[in-house]
């Protein structure tokens, strides 16, 4: 299971990459593996305001739907348009080409609650 050390994680199996004033988020290698073949990704529009408690979209595989939750409130500044035609990028490259959206956090303090790769790894192994 690939878990890059420079990323942060949530217990909803979302990874977060801090990039200056913005963060990029996607789903973890574990999440894509659990889902199987991803065939559809539903994402918000650029400019939309997201709240950390609401689902902002979904990743769907042949078999199941997985709701997406952002760890922070904020505005969507970029959306990965490539996923519209090639949702399988989520499987093939969950941390790079398979990124979902970029957000400008409204409350950067919320980022402090994120897990580092070791804590996330520990959570995964406890589940199994």
């Amino acid at each position: 299971m690939d878990l890059p050390n420079d990323l942060k994680y949530t217990d909803e199996h979302v990874w977060v990459r801090e990039e200056g004033d913005f963060i990029s988020i996607g789903v973890t290698d574990h999440a894509q593996d659990e889902l199987g073949d991803v065939v559809f990704v539903e994402l918000p529009e650029q400019g939309e305001q997201l709240s950390a408690t609401d689902s902002f979209g979904s990743v769907e595989s042949v078999k199941t739907v997985s709701e997406l939750y952002t760890p922070v409130d904020g505005e969507v500044v970029k959306v990965n348009q490539a996923l519209e035609d090639t949702p399988e990028l989520v499987n093939e490259s969950p941390y790079q080409q398979g990124w979902l959206i970029q957000i400008k956090p409204a409350n950067p303090d919320q980022l402090k609650q994120l897990l580092d790769s070791q804590s996330y790894q520990k959570q995964l192994s406890e589940k199994e």
């Binding site: 593996d33 659990e34 199987g36 073949d37 065939v39 595989s61 042949v62 078999k63």
Partner: peptide, 20 residues
């Protein structure tokens, strides 16, 4: 086999390589 699930009380695999 990947992902053994509960299918009507039976432990069965969802897929081996991938569904597609």
């Amino acid at each position: 086999a990947k992902k053994i699930i509960d299918y009507g009380g039976w432990a069965l695999p969802v897929h081996f390589s991938s569904i597609i």
